[in-house]
Design a protein around this nucleic acid. Sequence first.
DNA 1: AATATGCGCAACCGCTCCGTG
DNA 2: ACACGGAGCGGTTGCGCATAT
Length: 209
Amino acid sequence: MGRSPCCEKAHTNKGAWTKEEDQRLVSYINAHGEGCWRSLPKAAGLQRCGKSCRLRWINYLRPDLKRGNFTAEEDHVIIKLHQILGNKWSLIAARLPGRTDNEIKNYWNTHIKRKLLACGVDPRTHQSLTAATTAAAVPSSHRHDQQQAVLSSCSRDSSSGAGHSSNDDDSKSVSHSHRGGIDLNLSLSPPSQPSSPVAAAAKLLASPH
DNA sequence: AATATGCGCAACCGCTCCGTG
DNA sequence: ACACGGAGCGGTTGCGCATAT
């Protein structure tokens, strides 16, 4: 016997949300808070799956969302965090107030990935694409210095339109606890950092609350 | 002006994690 | 210790809009 489905699929709407549905969801959550998503649709009078309601609220309706273009600084944070955390979009989103995991994931896939490739950096490994071929000949610490240079130059490129350095606020540290208990205390400060992403991650993960 | 193509965003799906009995 | 249910996460898809031909 499998688990019961999260909702009665036969009686749920799918696809784009209507204004009325949005309104219902917002007013219900304003009145009752984000309680149990499974029972919320019924209580709010919505023909939607609880998961769908949750997603809609988190990614679109939440009042604290910062919609619009990503700043160069945010670009920089995303790239650095991705280098450390990989595709842990929710963890990355936790460091970017007003941004959602879905939004960051989309932004990564549509903008940053391409930008890194254009700069000759593998977006998955954050290694220089050319480094792969010369890896055997170059000491790993030196290789990483090269990666850092490419990454920071790329993220600066992206900010050229904004007319300010992506490092304006590098001293800003964000600390946020997460479901997994991971507490990264990320200070953005190129390029004085540990010699490898793994070391950086280890250091950050080990930092006290 | 009509059609094709590419891009970006919103939403869905399936899986994993975590709390609870 | 185990099974179950709910919540959350990441990958993927589909649709609408913009741009190119």
